[in-house]
Design a protein around this nucleic acid. Sequence first.
DNA 1: ATATCCATGTAATGCGTTACATGATTTG
DNA 2: CAAATCATGTAACGCATTACATGGATAT
Lengths: 196, 196
Amino acid sequence: MSLRYALLALLTAEPLTGYDAAKRFGASVGHVWHAPDSQIYPELRRMEREGLIAGEQVRWGPNSTKTRYSITDEGVRAFRDWMATPLDYAPVRDAAHMRAAYFEWTDPDRARECLQRHIEHYTEQIARWRATREAILDLTNDTIATRMRKFPAEDHERIIAFKAFAYDGLIGRGEAEIAWARQGLELLDKLAPAEE
Amino acid sequence: MSLRYALLALLTAEPLTGYDAAKRFGASVGHVWHAPDSQIYPELRRMEREGLIAGEQVRWGPNSTKTRYSITDEGVRAFRDWMATPLDYAPVRDAAHMRAAYFEWTDPDRARECLQRHIEHYTEQIARWRATREAILDLTNDTIATRMRKFPAEDHERIIAFKAFAYDGLIGRGEAEIAWARQGLELLDKLAPAEE
DNA sequence: ATATCCATGTAATGCGTTACATGATTTG
DNA sequence: CAAATCATGTAACGCATTACATGGATAT
């Protein structure tokens, strides 16, 4: 259900075609709510059917058109309603921690490898999150730049601060994951010192 | 697919009926990989069909039986194989951070409430994780106590250390979430000081 | 002209959630 | 004997993943 609200969030900045939405997604709200293109197109059509967004055909080349979706008043209302509704938390499903709990079932080197990959994974993610965070703060991110044009100057600070805050959370969590994995590497060294 | 390995992990400690597995689940591996009972029963049957576990009928009361599942050698092999396979990381899907990124679409009090609930949620989770962690360390947790009986004494330290380590990760992450939410509350105060 | 975007999907499958459903056994 | 627990599900639905599929437009 959240994909829908992620798309509404995106469309509060500007009207987009399915293709643009799918592309923008990856560089903005997709960082917190991933979805593949093949999920985005049908969801947009469903949202149109339900009146949350309106599609209009716009020319694309000489013989073709594409559909541009704009959020409707009803869509804005739905989005605000969702924003005001308490979240329910998805139950934990975390393969990395599950595996760590059973490291006795593999050899220490595999366990180390697993933790090293964990560190790499989050290091990469953090780099991406930091880059996006910076692009938001200096307005080189397209989505946020367009959004700013639509909202009065006195709102800009808050809008940007909230986006940066969200990325701070992702980064902080990523750092916690890395710290944990390092602790795990130490534990493995303590339990079975690397042989030479 | 991980539910399967979560169940195998559980059954490496001892044979269990579906009912017991479902109950044990919540107090152990379910902390890292949640699943409702209605998913566990059919998965156990599938795993039996595929030879990873073996079900035997055991008497239950005068007129009835129940099925007790034990892990097979093939099941142990499958579990070890999984343990040695690199994980792939599930894409982020995080409604709380998504919402925080769009706090300008609700009023500050709703935003505060959202963050406060975030703090409460993780505070509760952390309490649960800490309690389980303690129960593992002092062997009052049933699953771990039984597991210990099955493994030689020299393995006990590692086995327990890995379980505690996994919970440390959950706790650390939870603490990061709480720290983030507190930062958010401060941000909201800074942007729109509480009126009196 | 050819490669690369841009545009838009479908189909199959699997995983997960929710709600419902039932009966036997043990415990107090 | 009533309540709680043990035991085992089914059915419907929706969300997500993966792979496949196609054709027009634009840039070099």
